[in-house]
């Protein structure tokens, strides 16, 4: 029952799956952090329309299951509406998975950042305005950098959740590690070794997520703003 033979027989396929996971996670990390920062700026902006948009976005996206978001991207936008992002169909699915996952994760990045903004004393923004910085400048130069530093550890958790959420992209026809695993399991020739396969893939994810958590924890301590 604990024969790791089948796991290692398929190691090439599995590694390929993990490489796809890493490519998806890396792109989504960058994009969701950018989008999340923009959303958080909207939510504290002095312009009511932007605040309303930010709030509505977060509440809609955060409360929609990720599977639906990704299916909407792959089947809805890519297949039904034929909004192809590339001539190559697997590349097109990849980018839709990146966008869907980023759009979803951005809502969580936004909320983490917003709680970070709340840790920055009001006096910091007042001082920034008093020397003549505009709202955007004071947000970009004074408030957001301090907010980021306050929430590095929670952002690490968001990132870890996102890395594991890449497995949902399987539903959107993107062949990452979990889909590879399922393909191996479903093959008629596969008769035993399911548990070792699960364990192997789980360890694979931990290899990705554990260092992420440690790194962000370390960074959080290092970058903390002394008050």
């Amino acid at each position: 029952m604990f024969d790791f033979g089948p796991f290692f027989d398929n190691i090439d396929l599995i590694l390929e799956g993990f490489w796809a996971t890493v490519r998806l996670a890396a792109a989504a990390a960058v994009l969701s952090f950018i989008l999340g920062t923009v959303l958080a700026s909207f939510r504290v902006a002095p312009i009511p329309v932007l605040r309303t948009f930010g709030t509505a976005y977060v509440n809609v996206v955060r409360n929609t299951p990720l599977t639906l978001v990704l299916l909407f991207c792959s089947f809805g936008l890519n297949d039904v509406l034929a909004m192809r992002l590339s001539g190559n169909s697997s590349t097109s699915y990849y980018w839709w998975a990146v966008f869907g996952l980023s759009a979803y994760t951005a809502a969580f990045v936004c909320e983490a950042l917003r709680s970070g903004i709340n840790t920055v004393p009001l006096g910091q923004a007042e001082a920034a305005r008093s020397i003549g910085l505009t709202f955007t400048q004071s947000l970009r130069i004074i408030v957001l950098p301090q907010a980021f530093r306050a929430v590095i550890a929670p952002l690490g958790s968001v990132l870890i959740a996102m890395i594991k959420n890449t497995t949902v992209a399987a539903a959107a026809s993107y062949a990452e590690a979990a889909l590879v695993m399922k393909t191996i399991l479903d093959a008629p020739s596969f008769t035993s070794g399911a548990i070792p396969l699960f364990i192997g893939v789980a360890v694979g994810f931990m290899i990705l997520t554990l260092p992420t958590g440690f790194f962000f924890g370390w960074l959080h301590k290092r970058m903390a703003v002394a008050r």
Binding site: P121, G123, Q124, E126, A128, S130, I131, G132, Q146
Partner: peptide
């Protein structure tokens, strides 16, 4: 505001 200096009770230096 750039022409009007302000000094606060709680200093408010950029931390």
């Amino acid at each position: 505001r750039a022409d009007v200096g302000m000094v606060f009770q709680s200093f408010n230096l950029f931390a």
